[in-house]
């Protein structure tokens, strides 16, 4: 009996190790690449932990004068697109849930199915016509294609689960429609808003395809900037891996810190979304 438990435990531990190892190995290797000098990165057999740590890879990334600009661009685009999406998406999720118009959310589903590029062609022409290319505005607006559906989708499913009785009580207490939303529905929906915020930030931050078309030299976001390092500079692995890690680090930290919210958001959207 006891032996069986030990065997079972060992087997489970092995399974989990097997499951987690690709992810774990990848990120450790990414870190290793970013901390090695070129000599060590070019060594065969590969070296995991170098004798000399190349902090200069990171210093180099920050010193390259445009990196901070791209960082700022990313924050403006992600921040702008997320805030705008919350401003229009949270009330919309509320309205759709209360009108029981969930069928209308099909538009959101279809938007999720549509390839990003097919939004890009007409909007690119529109922005060109409006003379907005060269500013961050087109990117903020086109990121709404990603963030607004996320926010609306999550908020619909969240507001559908909040009790209607509370809002009726508020109506009897003398609240107007807006006050019911502002003072009762919104505070209760705070956890849902947090989930929508996190997912919106992550997917906007990670977005690449809109940037490669719409961004000029001055308006690149981080993913585009990192990709351009690969294309135009003499490729050296250490600084490139360091830049890649810096770009994705905020997201990775968020994933670990807000794991519960992320999983709740993704599965709520997914399971209902089918």
């Amino acid at each position: 009996m006891n032996l069986r438990k030990i065997v079972h435990g060992t087997w489970m531990a092995f399974c989990v190790f097997l499951l987690v190892s690709p992810a774990l190995f990848f990120f450790i290797w990414m870190l290793s690449l970013s901390l090695k000098y070129e000599i060590d990165n070019g060594a065969y057999p590969p070296i995991l932990i170098p004798e000399r740590i190349a902090w200069k890879n990171y210093a180099g990334v920050f010193e390259s004068n445009n990196f901070l600009l791209y960082f700022k661009n990313s924050i403006i685009v992600t921040g702008g697109a997320t805030l705008l999406a919350l401003m229009v998406g949270v009330p919309a999720g509320y309205g759709i849930a209360r009108m029981r118009a969930t069928k209308s959310a099909m538009v959101i589903m279809i938007a999720r199915m549509t390839p990003g590029l097919s939004f890009l062609i007409p909007l690119f022409l529109l922005f060109q016509w409006l003379g907005l290319l060269g500013t961050l505005v087109p990117q903020i607006l086109i990121h709404l294609v990603v963030t607004v559906p996320i926010v609306i989708w999550i908020m619909i499913s969240y507001f559908e689960t909040t009790p209607l009785e509370l809002e009726e009580a508020a109506m009897i207490d003398g609240a107007t429609r807006w006050q019911v939303f502002r003072n009762v529905a919104l505070p209760i929906a705070k956890p849902g808003i947090v989930v929508a915020f996190i997912l919106s930030v992550i997917f906007s931050w990670n977005n690449f395809v809109f940037g490669i078309v719409l961004a000029s030299r001055e308006t690149r976001t981080l993913p585009v900037a990192v990709y351009n390092m690969l294309s135009f500079e003499q490729v050296s692995w250490g600084p490139l891996a360091a830049a890649a890690l810096i770009v994705t680090l905020p997201v990775l930290i968020l994933t670990i810190v807000a794991q519960r919210q992320i999983i709740a958001g993704l599965t709520a959207g997914a399971v209902k979304g089918g």
Binding site: P22, F26, G42, L230, L240, A244, L252, L254, T255
Partner: peptide, 30 residues
């Protein structure tokens, strides 16, 4: 463990792609 397992899907795709490109390298790739 679940957090680590979930990380690949949340990480920035371009950043991941760059590292995979290095890992795929026929001579120097891990």
């Amino acid at each position: 463990l679940r957090g680590i397992f979930v990380m690949p899907m949340m990480a920035t795709p371009v950043a991941i792609a760059l590292v995979w490109t290095m890992m795929f390298h026929p001579q120097l790739g891990v």
